[in-house]
Amino acid sequence: MSKKRSNYRKDAKNIIIEVKEPDELLSFLLKVMSNRSRNSVKSILARGQVTIDDHIEKRFNYPLKPGQTVTILKNKAAVKQDVLIGMQILYEDEDIIVINKEAGLLSIATEKEKQQTALHQLMKYVKREDPENRIFVVHRLDKDTSGVMMFAKSEHVKRKLQDNWAKAVKERTYVALVEGRFTEKEGYITSWLRETKTHLMYSSQTPNDGLLAKTRYTFIQGNADFSLLELNLETGRKNQIRVHMQDLGHPVVGDKKYGSKERDAIGRLGLHAKTLTFQHPTTNKILTFKADVPASFLSKSK
């Protein structure tokens, strides 16, 4: 491997490479893993074992840029707390698990993907201790949204959290990288959200015409092309932030579904669940968990 192309290092679990020259991801990996066959490298990509900076990337032709960091997970066979693919456990006790999910990882299974999900991996993780252990979904993050997410370890805890979600959750803060320069320092948007037959959400200003959605936003930093916002959800509707940003004329970067023209500006959706504060379902203690703002959000909005 040419030193001009990358800085190459290893740790106990990963191969970590800093990109020095433009390249496509598959081509780059074939050079890094020259001892593996082309099909083997393709399989590693398809299984979600490669991350670019702060997101999982599976596209063979993803364009790499100098300064990006490529990480390859060496061992996928054993799912342990420190070897979960596309997530890190922030907290765990007898009732809940809180994770920091990377962009590109599904929360739950779809028709096309059953195993490479946060739920499936955590289920395998808890079953290592006891085959009877299980994991239950409390809330979800979109595949391309990163950040803090919570799961329950029993049906009882799941129901208790979901039935009291509005009261139990004290703060849900997101950050979004959006298109264009924001002129307002802060604001508040309210609408009623409806869903089309093709599962596209849209806003209505007619009272009670759908589910009420409330989003408060604060400008953090920006330039002529991009703005970084902090958003507090007063309601938790499907695609709420994405629809409200489109309504404001500043769609979330990478969100082609809701009006973004900057699809590949950061190689992912510009949405991240930064903070989750809630009352523990058993101890009643107030807990706060945070996931750092992705570096690509900060650099693009400088």
Rank of each mutant, 00 (worst) to 15 (best):
G147C: 06
E92S: 05
L90G: 06
L141Y: 08
L106Y: 04
Q116W: 09
V137W: 13
E102D: 12
F136I: 01
K112N: 07
M150K: 14
M149W: 14
L141H: 06
I108H: 15
E129G: 05
A118H: 07
F136N: 03
I97G: 03
S146T: 02
D142R: 05
A103E: 03
T145S: 06
L119Y: 15
E132Q: 08
L141C: 12
Q121I: 10
V148F: 09
G147N: 04
M149K: 12
M149P: 03
E113V: 11
L90I: 07
N100H: 12
G147E: 04
E132L: 06
V126R: 01
M149C: 10
E113N: 09
Y91E: 01
M150E: 07
L119G: 04
D95W: 09
Q115H: 13
E94R: 02
L106W: 00
A103L: 02
P131R: 01
N133Y: 12
Q121P: 13
D144L: 08
V126I: 03
R140Q: 14
K127R: 08
V138M: 14
Y91N: 00
I108W: 13
R128Y: 07
N133L: 08
K114W: 12
L119N: 05
I135V: 13
M150D: 09
L122T: 03
Q121W: 10
Q115N: 12
T110A: 00
K112Q: 07
I135E: 02
L122N: 05
L105I: 10
Y125I: 10
G104V: 03
D130M: 02
S146K: 03
L106Q: 02
F136K: 01
Y91Q: 03
H139A: 02
M150G: 09
D95E: 09
L119T: 12
P131E: 09
T110I: 05
E102Y: 15
D93M: 04
M150S: 11
Q115Y: 13
E102T: 06
R140T: 12
T145A: 08
M149R: 14
V138A: 14
D130W: 01
E92T: 04
Q121C: 09
E132T: 09
N100E: 11
I135R: 02
Q121L: 06
T145I: 05
S107C: 13
M150T: 14
H139R: 03
N133Q: 07
S107K: 15
I96N: 11
V137C: 10
